[in-house]
Design a binder for these strands. Structure first.
Lengths: 408, 408
DNA sequence: AAGCTTTTTCTCGACAGTCGAGAAATTAGA
DNA sequence: TCTAATTTCTCGACTGTCGAGAAAAAGCTT
């Protein structure tokens, strides 16, 4: 059923439109906002006046006055309108970043990821968040959103990790990491989902369009996949299918998830190691494999070692077959490959293409674009900011109290 | 980027909201519309007055006057506001149905699907459409939409069949079937997509909710799949992934599409035939297989014939593995099985469950609900109407000329 | 049969929002 | 100092939703 609409909702939507234009271009004048949003000048006046009264945006000091005419007044977000903490969880570290409402990074630090169960893990994150606000002398209450990312499967509605490489199917509820004194909302997203979102936003920014949909494939100890799709007149739709644990081969090699024959059990780092040393495929896979180990295998493969070459080729084929199934079920789209595994692209490529070549969609639509984008960490952070600010802006506008109270 | 919003759009959206309430419940009074939409009574007055002036809805003759109080005035669509033709293409027949704006079926007839290429095929459809309007003495111009369905792959934006079992990858553009004198828009959708849409709408109607997403699997000569997902405050999102030609087994049996190892090449009727008679898997598959042939194999299987049993079991496994991949890439969801193949469900079930059981998603989320819904044709027709009317209503409201001109 | 009750529909005024046009502001250049 | 250029601001017209209460129209009561 459609939702009913009202004039107040119109104002809300146009307000977030103004804010998102400010996010995308940063520090805009009245006329520029009008151009970017398509709204009439008078409307911009009204909206910016509201937002200014509500102390969400402010007139910028530094007037970039160039040309004749009346000098332009630049608007930008009020920095201390609120804060945002991103928490990026990887296999060995947890990275915390504190960002102000204008999107500038104020502080960043990492902590080693300790041992222990989910309770200890959540306690560590709780402490990390406390440390983040204390270091910058910020009130807990002014943190609007905590955006967490991890590998694994997140519940779509709540910040609960349903499955992760480390804790398996033991659920981790990140909402529990915030104790009293915090008013922040907590969101959790798969890491590669954020990468896909960041790549899509980059396309929009540079080319102003391009393909309306793309996939991000992250290669490493585990295999991640994100899909991002532009929808006309709305926020992009991003999702993280369980690609790494999709079935690659019935009754195949044992996977870390406990199932058999997953894509990851052939294309993850530990799987490449297992294949290269001809360890039986039902061996319990190693928890952690140092990248240097895989580098050694890659070196041997590049020197002509058959078994090492085969390990990478089979990994590539598992990815290729998986991608062919992805294209079958989600439609044709370009694929961007990222993560530490990209350094073995030369060894994987042939297998990937072999796996892709057979299928109907590829025969119809041609080989999908395969682009390597090595710098995964900055994509993850970009994805955090894109998503988090779109939510924060929406929320801040949605809670109209702030706008009206401040107007008194 | 978000789209800008305006007060006129608000009225548009609320108008289609009123129309869709009328679609769902049929013939409503002022207050009922208000309850169903959540709009204020005054707003309903204004909108219904507009729609009545524009000759889109009318006050119903038959006043179901029961109880005290002022008698209610029932509104319903004006029957001759416009017409809709659905064209359901199956392997041997083409069925045409003429429906008026209120949703009642006026005429229906079928024609055998002749031989020949795409040009002859389009000419036949063109003739069929002419016949439909002539039989009911309706003006071509008053047909608002022609909704076509077929098995195969449709281009998302235009009514072009990109791949079909009969014409292969030779594209068929149904827009070409309408010559001068027609103003109708033409839409084309995969048959099983419509089934999925109809099933979702049925759930909404009966349970007012249920799972927000489901898959429809159609078993027959070819394998079709549709996904329907409810989105909060919007039209449901329905899609038809290329499930039948997703890779089941690398270097596997030859498929009608020319590729190897597709799901269909193991689970389609011709594949079951091929397996039961131990014909080599690279044999060019039969174009048409009478259902009676499959019935015979099923009878033998039920009497204990090993080879026949295996044919069905392998078909089931191909479906099960395919579904496990579907759940991996689209998330956990219930599956509704339909089509002529449902009569062999007893023989397929074990294989399907075996194929599903292994995967990570199923281990996490449990075995998905598998429900058999035998009556595919009525689901297809329902799906046509749901989708077509939502488009027609949107269009009729969107073209404001009609509303203003009629208001003079 | 007249009046009362009940229920629905309709109408009016208040309020919120967008937009176009033009006034006001402000600076660069003549 | 005046003028042209450019941006911002303001005003009135228009469209839309909503709540409250009037008007309508039937059944029920006496």
């Amino acid at each position: 059923m459609l939702a009913k609409s009202s004039t107040e909702l119109v104002r809300q939507q146009n307000s977030v439109l103004v804010l998102s234009a400010l996010r995308r271009h940063g520090r805009l004048a009245h006329t520029e906002i009008s151009d970017a949003t398509g709204l009439a000048s008078a409307t911009i006046s009204s909206i910016t006046a509201d937002l200014e009264r509500a102390r969400i945006i402010e007139k910028s000091e530094q007037q970039a006055t160039v040309g004749r005419g009346r000098p332009r007044v630049l608007f930008s977000q009020r920095r201390n309108c609120g804060y945002l903490i991103t928490v990026i969880i990887s296999s060995d570290l947890i990275q915390y970043s504190l960002v102000d409402y204008a999107g500038t990074l104020l502080d960043r630090f990492s902590e080693p990821r300790g041992e222990g169960g989910t309770a200890a893990f959540l306690a560590a994150i709780s402490a990390g968040l406390e440390r983040a606000v204390e270091r910058s002398r910020i009130e807990r209450g002014s943190v609007l959103l905590v955006s967490v990312s991890s590998k694994g499967l997140a519940r779509p509605t709540e910040p609960v990790l349903v499955w992760s490489p480390v804790f398996g199917s033991q659920p981790v509820d990140f909402a529990a990491a915030l104790k009293d004194g915090w008013q922040a909302k907590v969101i959790l997203n798969n890491e590669t989902l954020l990468v896909a979102g960041a790549l899509l936003e980059r396309q929009v920014k540079t080319q102003g369009g391009g393909e309306p949909v793309l996939a991000a494939l992250s290669l490493g100890h585990s295999i991640g996949l994100g899909i991002a799709r532009r929808v006309t007149g709305g926020v992009p739709e991003i999702s993280a299918p369980n690609f790494g644990h999709m079935l690659h081969m019935p009754n195949g090699g044992l996977c870390r998830c406990g199932a058999r024959g997953c894509v990851e059990a052939y294309a993850g780092f530990y799987a490449i190691l297992r294949a290269a040393f001809e360890v039986p495929v039902d061996t319990i896979p190693a928890k952690f494999v140092p990248v240097t180990e895989i580098d050694k295998i890659a070196a041997r493969a590049r020197q002509g070692n058959r078994m090492a070459q085969l390990a990478f080729r089979n990994a590539g084929a598992a990815l290729g077959y998986g991608l062919s199934r992805l294209l079958s079920l989600h439609g044709h789209m370009p694929v961007f490959i990222t993560g530490p595994g990209t350094r073995y692209q030369d060894l994987l490529q042939a297998g990937i293409e072999e796996g892709l070549a057979q299928t109907h969609v590829v025969r119809l639509g041609g080989m999908p674009g395969l682009t390597v984008v090595p710098d995964e960490p900055s994509l993850v952070f970009e994805g955090h900011l894109n998503l988090a600010f779109s939510i924060v802006d929406q929320d801040i506008i949605g809670s109209r109290q702030s706008m009206q109270a401040a107007g008194e």
